[in-house]
Design a protein around this nucleic acid. Structure first.
Lengths: 165, 165
DNA sequence: GCTCATATGTTATAATGTAACGCCCATGAA
DNA sequence: TTCATGGGCGTTACATTATAACATATGAGC
């Protein structure tokens, strides 16, 4: 099993966690990946990626916009959405459809699509990378002759911490 | 494997299909289920369910609203959303998060959550009921100590017809 | 420096979804 | 019968999310 975390360094954020370290790591990985690919991680795009990671869970576009305005007065919705489009294209950010929200990808570089566990009590999320889930989906689709492009898997429930509260 | 269809009577709609029959069947099932449960399938709710089924694929709330206005002048967004809330609660309709759209459930009465194949070429969708997918999700979640509530599975790609065009 | 494509700024608007309040009507108790 | 109750729906207003369209700036390569 290959489970991991978003945005903290355990399956779900733990209390004494140094999150700024995660942010730095994520930015560093993003820089490297974009350099390898010749993709332009501009100042704006890096700022938006930092803001996504600084959030302790999935964050909406307009919340990001509010925070971005602290850095760039005059930012407007297209500012955010264009940056997010780029980051998603590069596999650095995932969009969670059920929440209309965005979250940093824990496995940039590895070809995969997001599988998310979303805690309805605390709002945190964890990213799964489960080949078994993708495999089961592909078998079901193949049985109907369907050619798979993207797979969205979003699971709601309670994270370990919120179960014991 | 237990695959089936939405809204037609094969894995994906076929050309000479008599769709009005599907609509009637769906309404009849809904009447029966609601009667058993003591749930009130009112005139409005039945009309909305018919409109959902009359669509040959997932349909947005405001498209439904436009059509409903042909039957009830003065219908407003809450009219549609409240009816949809009821229908979803009763398991008669599913919401497809990626599309912000709604589709009739092929398996009302059977406890399940929607698993959808969505053709990006023709817009049609097919509903899967794959215990293997749910099982794989549950195992992945259990490994992180996550208690599952709902599972959203939405797969995009090409249906058999659109692959051969 | 020039040119071109790309990135970003800017304004406006589209698309989707909800809050809040009040009326009506069916139901059941006094 | 009357009246309280609650659900369903009408209605208005508004909140939230996302995009279109056009102008300007920036940066990489020549």
């Amino acid at each position: 099993m290959n489970a991991s975390i978003s945005p903290a360094d355990g399956p779900f954020p733990s209390p004494g966690h140094d999150h700024s370290h995660c942010v730095e790591t994520a930015i560093a990985r993003a820089e490297r990946l974009c350099a390898e690919r010749g993709a332009r991680l501009t100042g704006l795009r890096r700022q938006v990626l930092e803001l996504v990671w600084q959030s302790h869970g999935p964050i909406g576009a307009y919340d990001l916009l509010d925070r971005l305005r602290g850095l760039r007065s005059g930012a407007a919705p297209p500012t955010i959405y264009r940056a997010l489009d780029f980051l998603i294209e590069q596999g650095l950010v995932h969009r969670i459809a059920r929440l209309n929200a965005f979250v940093g990808c824990d496995h940039p570089g590895a070809p995969h699509q997001g599988q998310f566990l979303i805690c309805t009590a605390c709002g945190s999320s964890a990213e799964l990378v489960e080949p078994e889930i993708a495999g089961a989906i592909d078998r079901g689709a193949a049985a109907l002759g369907f050619r798979v492009d993207t797979r969205t898997v979003e699971v709601t429930g309670l994270c370990p911490r919120c179960q014991s509260r």
